[in-house]
Design a protein around this nucleic acid. Structure first.
Length: 105
DNA sequence: AGCCTGACTCCTA
DNA sequence: CTAGGAGCCAGGC
């Protein structure tokens, strides 16, 4: 496990329940601005039983980047936290985007 | 080196 | 709001 992954995990772990963050937010918070695509790469290789709130990560357009059953699973997890997710996977960044720690930097 | 790929992002139409 | 296209960066061939 390299330094990059460590930082990504640490950042994702901080996202509070009930809110979401974009790939770019996580990359930036982890100290690797511009590495949004790599955040997705790391998350795609997480073990199925991970404790990390990977489902709280969505793209900059406020939509879930997964498809098929994976998309269904992520929508379910988010709704369990009270987040409103439209049938097409759209989420209101305006309402749920995690800002707290990001603004502190 | 060159080309392709991807849980991305930004800008333009 | 959707569709392209360029820019992005590391990895695999």
């Amino acid at each position: 496990m390299n330094e990059f992954e460590q930082q990504i995990y640490a950042a994702v772990y901080q996202i509070p329940s009930g809110s979401v963050a974009t790939y770019g937010d996580i990359a930036k918070l982890a100290g690797y601005p511009g590495y949004a695509r790599h955040v997705g790469k790391v998350l795609s290789s997480l073990p199925k039983d991970t404790q990390l709130p990977w489902f709280r990560i969505i793209n900059s357009q406020g939509r879930i980047s997964l498809k098929g059953t994976s998309l269904e699973r992520q929508m379910a997890r988010l709704r369990e936290e009270g987040i409103l997710v439209e049938p097409n996977g759209k989420i209101s960044l305006k309402k749920y985007r995690w800002r707290e720690l990001i603004d502190l930097n």
